[in-house]
């Protein structure tokens, strides 16, 4: 369980997050949703510790991350995998070297064991046999999947994904969503995803928080999204006039 407690974050005079408290459930696909610029990335980076909150606390189970030693912090980070919005694959390394990197750095496994784990992770994301390609030689969707493979290579307890399907076509985006939620279930990990994609919300949102203007505007499960009257949520979900027409037709029936 990861718990955000009264998180406030300001950059200069700009208040990006205003007093956000939310609990992310273990073994579930947790979503942080909201429009572009709502503060999703900043919130996610505060949760993983890449940014420090101006005030408030982040708890991993019963550990307050602000107050642990550097050593403990590194240990915690070993249990975290993260997929970045721009993949953050190292472009001078091959796919295999990218996925192997955390193992090279932190384990004493033999080359054979490492290769086995690389191949296992690549198979998990349905990308067998591209070991020797460079990130620039594969498509955006494949890069995302390699990013996922790298994130799960050390069997993390927590998986963080920043906009995993931005920039992908709808079909590929759904594949990525299925992949992440499948990994979450199979490996019993706690996943937190940033997204503004409605398909993701409706398909994989076990536990959702909606950010708007730096505030927590709504929280709930995907089953609760459609029948509720939270204005911010309705405005976010039925963003286009087309969807609004569909909604009013459905309501008037």
């Amino acid at each position: 369980m990861i718990r955000a407690e009264n998180i406030v974050k300001t950059f200069g005079s700009q208040e990006v997050l205003r007093d956000i408290s939310f609990t992310f459930d273990d073994g579930k696909t947790n979503l942080i949703i909201g429009k572009s610029g709502a503060g999703k990335t900043v919130f996610l980076k505060i949760l993983v510790g890449l940014l420090q909150p101006t005030s408030g606390a982040v708890w991993f189970d019963d550990i307050d991350v602000c107050c642990i030693s550097k050593e403990q912090h590194r240990e915690l980070r070993m249990q975290i995998g993260m997929l970045f919005q721009g993949n953050a694959l190292f472009d001078s390394l091959t796919v295999e070297e990218n996925i192997r990197f955390p193992m090279d750095m932190f384990t004493t496994r033999t080359a054979k064991e490492k290769l086995k784990q690389v191949d296992y992770c690549l198979e998990r994301v349905s990308l067998e046999g591209i070991n020797d390609k460079y990130p620039s030689e594969i498509s955006g969707g494949m890069q995302k999947r390699v990013g996922i493979a790298r994130a799960i290579v050390l069997n993390p307890k927590y998986l963080f994904c920043d906009e995993p399907n931005s920039g992908l076509d709808p079909k590929t985006a759904i594949t990525i969503d299925d992949l992440i939620s499948g990994i979450t279930k199979d490996n019993k990990i706690t996943t937190i995803i940033n997204t503004h994609d409605m398909n993701s919300v409706m398909e994989i949102g076990d536990n959702i928080c909606l950010l708007s203007d730096g505030k927590l505007a709504w929280k709930g499960r995907k089953e609760e999204v459609l029948d509720n009257d939270n204005e911010v949520l309705i405005d976010f979900i039925f963003a286009s006039p087309f969807l609004q027409r569909l909604r009013s037709q459905a309501l008037s029936k």
Binding site: K45, L50, R77, I80, A88, F90, D91, M105
Partner: peptide
């Protein structure tokens, strides 16, 4: 390109 963030998350100094 967030490579440094990615390494930090892995636990690299």
């Amino acid at each position: 390109k967030e490579h440094i963030d990615a390494m930090e998350i892995m636990g690299v100094n």
